[in-house]
Write a protein that binds this DNA or RNA. Sequence first.
RNA 1: GCCCUGGUGGUGGAAUUGGUAGACACGCAGGACUUAAAAUCCUGUUCGCCGCAACGCGAGUGCGGGUUCAAUUCCCGCCUGGGGCACCA
Length: 812
Amino acid sequence: MEYNFRQIEKKWQDHWKASGAYRVSNESNRPKYYVLDMFPYPSGAGLHVGHPLGYIASDIFSRFKRLKGFNVLHPMGYDAFGLPAEQYAIEHGIHPAVSTERNINNFRKQLDNIGFSYDWHREVRTSDEKYYKWTQWIFLQLFNSFFSRLTNKAESIALLVADFEMNGNSVHACPGDASVHFSAAEWKTFSEKQQQDILMLYRLAYCGYGEVNWCEALGTVLANDEVVNGVSERGGYPVVKKKLRQWYLRITEYADRLLEGLQTIEFSEAMTEMQTNWIGKSYGAEIDFNIVSRQTPDVNPESSGVRDQSTANSRLTVYTTRPDTIFGVDFMVIAPEHGLIEGITTEEQRNEVETYIAYVKSRSDRERQAEKKISGCFTGSYAVNPFDGRQIPIWISEYVLAGYGTGAIMGVPCGDERDHKFARHFNIPITNIIGEHYNGEDANPTKDATLSNSGFLDGTVMREAIGIVISKLEEMGIGKRKVNYKMRDAAFSRQRYWGEPFPIQWKKGIAVPLPETELPLVLPVVESYSAGPEGEGPLANIPEWVARELETNTMPGYAGSSWYFIRYMDPHNDKSFCDRKVSDYWNQVDLYIGGTEHAVGHLLYSRMWTKALYDLGHIGFDEPFRKLLNQGMIQGSSRFIYKVSPTIESVEKNPTFPHILISKSLVELYESNSPEVVSQVENAVTLALLSLPPNVKILSQKHKIIPLHVDVNIVDGFELDIKECRKWRNGEYANAIFICEDGVNTPLSAGGEGSGVRFICGAETEKMSKSKFNTVNPDDLVHKFGADTFRMYEMFLGPVEQSKPWDTKGIE
RNA sequence: GCCCUGGUGGUGGAAUUGGUAGACACGCAGGACUUAAAAUCCUGUUCGCCGCAACGCGAGUGCGGGUUCAAUUCCCGCCUGGGGCACCA
């Protein structure tokens, strides 16, 4: 008897729907269990077979837990704000809400095909104003809070103000600017604006200035993604850095708690390590060096530290984790954006420095770090080693980033690989302070060497010298112990349209939160999606918006996704983001399934938001995800056809030369000049020429072979379906000549079908993407084999955590 | 460049306190059954070589070294696929 899966699956899916089989209640005597998928961004391309892998795994697990007697929360929704929808709007003039809605409907249809047991009654969409009302509300919680280093948690900004009135900021040092100090009396004399500016330096969500990728030609701010090799991806226009007002989350204040929290949750070791590295806590010292603009020949080691010359009051502060190597410093490197450059560049060097900075300006941080070629430029000034008076040249180089530490490092070539390469490249003499541990060829970052050439540290093991040097620096008042984090505060605004508006009004330069009763602040309809004046977002083009002095930035994509797992618990509540009783019942997500690509974005931000909401008493748990499982990526298995591409000369422009395609194994034979294959190719070229005007000539004897992606869906295993290929891409290959394993397949127009049918494609494993024609649509597979077969097959592809290539053939 | 992760037959994958590499399964090939096919069953299947024959010979876990009686497993140096690197989500 035939198993009619289409009929059977439809029957049961309809039944589930009609009976509300997967509706789950917040009231239950059964123990709870919360299984969550990372909700998708509803892209226009729809789902491919890679997306459901994690969904299938979590669905199976949810069903299992239900059968085991748990009350299982297993919801789904859409991360619906984002750049692609806005891009689409710019190009096609379709409102993002419209295209997003359409995409969501398509996603839903695809998901339903697979037979998931989601409680769709709880669906959330981040772009829904009923949802983002609460995103805005949480933003205001963050805005109205600061992180108390005394209690190690977020507290109300009102408490801070009360404390300022009593103690100035002696109790709560300023996290935004360590140089800010004031007494209670001074606080009271500050104007409203001054007070607010100070409070801004404390708020967990705050406004400051930051650099963005600005493209003058497109008149818009670009994402790093949209910048390729220093020019815009669209159009190839130049991109420069521009300073704009930006909102930030003060996530750095949570650095330690984010680190500690990792111990209490089950993330994979790799994930834990990634987050740990991202936070990048390091212990070291900040050291001040005096600067002199000219090298003095006779240096008296005892007095030079104080014998400053013309530029006596300028100092260079570096951050180092290795103060023990201070006698090995042979040069300083400062970031090209460093504030000192203007003041310390000598006349002779000015031209060179300006040229160099101009070169660096267009490059992204990543390009700067990835650059293999060493670049840099001397400022003409010197820093003075406080211990031996040695004068150390100060260089500028792109490998030092302004955003980390102090934007300046001390170069110790014998102990650091990058410094070593730098010194070699610019012929800077290298001081060896680690004796035989340095071989003169490669830097050695050891901490176990006994120091030499190191003044008072000679004979000390490096590991121990670290503390000694710091104490000495502190004693001399020219340095201090410093804990540093690689993590920076999270940029929280975008100069874009399709995101949550900030519930903030600007009154006389002061950010004033909208009252809760005015939430949600609804995203208005705009005429144009292009940027406003001065690089502001599209909202700046709306007169009423500007007249109300509303913030024109919008929130980034991760705003809505930082708390969606809480909203699923109580999705229709219009009194609160989530009833406390309900969140106490469901508590943490017990199992969260999603990709590692969110390791340092979403998975950090949502942890921070959870901690802040916990601190402020809105929820009862401070880690959102008890256990995280990272599903592997399903890679695409691309197929290639090989195009024979002769060099053509013609008086006509762009003659349409019929494609000549050659089977995989024949490619090698052709390239090794197998006479049989060469003559086959020549015959094909001759045949192709017949269809062209007579003035077309073939120039070279040997033709280029170009591999081209072909749609995997018209390939069975490795064998191309030639008939389908002729129809593919609106008939681009309709007249192609296929040189097959078993003969030549010619188009009807050239005298009927030839004999060849076996055309073998090349294969490669790549990321699954539309442009590579290697995506496989789950709908097709479900239609052909049924949802159960499809689900089972995805699970049998290999361990969920592992990446593996898709192979449609295997399903049979 | 930096961080994370993977690389074992045609395919998914077994095997690690270092002890017979390739279990199991898919695929493929041959055979049985059938008029024929599908399904099912049987046999073979890492590669190469020798042979009338096998409990025959050799190589083999990305590449190159090393440690060891013994290495997929440990160490060093590389190559390579995938993910991330702060405005894609």
